[in-house]
Amino acid sequence: MQILEAIRENKLLLSGSILILVFIALAVLAPFITLYDPNDVKVEIRLLPPGEQHLMGTDGFGRDIFSRIIYGTRYSLFLALAVVSVNLLLGLMIGSIAGYFGGMIDELIMRTVDVLLAFPNIILALCIVGVLGPSIPNLLVALVALGWVGYTRISRGLVLSIKEQGFIGAAKALGGSNMYIIVRHIIPNAFPSLLVLATLHVGHTILSIAALSFLGLGVQAPTPEWGAMLSEGKQFIFTYPHVMIFPGVAITFSVLSFNLFGEGLRDILDPRAREVLNV
C-alpha cells in the first residue's frame, strides 16, 4: 500500500507506470485489439496511408502497421525485460561474491570486468551475433555477454560498503554462514539501487534490440519487431514516411516510459544513487 501511495505522489513514477501498464496490456491483449494478422501479406493494398480501415496504414507488403506495432510490443518488451533481469541477477551474484570475499576472487572477477568494459557494447554484440548467426536466442546471448559487467561493478561497490556495517558483524557473531549473510543481509540492501539502474536499462536495451534488428542481426523478418520494421520501411522514408514513423514513435514511447519509471523509482528508493548512475 505504501508503494501505491508513493506512485500516486511521484509524477514521474505515475506517468511511467501508466505507460508501462499500457504497453503490457497491449502485448498481452494483442489478438483482441487488432483486426488483422500482423504477417498477412496483401500486395493489392500495399502502402496505404493511415485511414479508417488501417489505423496506421499498411507497409510495403500490405501488412497492417497497427497490428504489427501491437504484436511488436511483445518482442521489444519481453526481450528487453529478459535481458535486463538476467544481467541484474548475474551481476548481483558475481558482484556480491567479488565484494564479499575480496582477495584473489575479487581481482579475478574485477579484472575480467575491466577487460569487458573496454569493449564498445554494440560492436561486440554485432560480432557475437555475426558469428553465432542472427536469431532471438543469440541476440539474448549478445546482450547478456556485456550487460552483466555494469551490474557486477556497481554491486561490488555496494557490497564493499554494506559488508562493513554493524549488522553484518552482528550476523557473523550469531553464527551466520557466508551464503546466509550474502543472501539475507547483503543482497536485500544492495537490491534497491540496482533495481533503479535496471529499470533505466530497460529503455536502453529496447533501443539496442531495435538497433540490432535494424541492422538485420536481431529479430528476423517477417517477425513484427519495431527495429526490423524501421529497417523495412527505410526505403520509403521520403515517399511513404508513415511506414517508418509509427515504429519509431513506438520505440520512443516505450523507452520514455521505462526512463520515467526508473527516474521516479530512483527518487523514492535511493536518492543517493544519483551520483552512482551519473558516472
Binding site: 556495517q165 554493524g166 549488522f167 558483524g169 552482528a170 557473523k172 557473531a173 536485500p188
Partner: peptide, 23 residues
C-alpha cells in the same frame, strides 16, 4: 560458526547499526 549463535552469542553496542535496515 556452529558454536556462534547456538552456544556463544554476542551482541554489539549500538543496535541501530547492528540491525539490518532492509529486513
Amino acid at each position: 560458526r556452529k558454536v556462534r549463535g547456538r552456544q556463544v552469542a554476542m551482541i554489539f553496542q549500538n543496535p541501530s547499526s547492528s540491525l539490518n535496515p532492509a529486513l
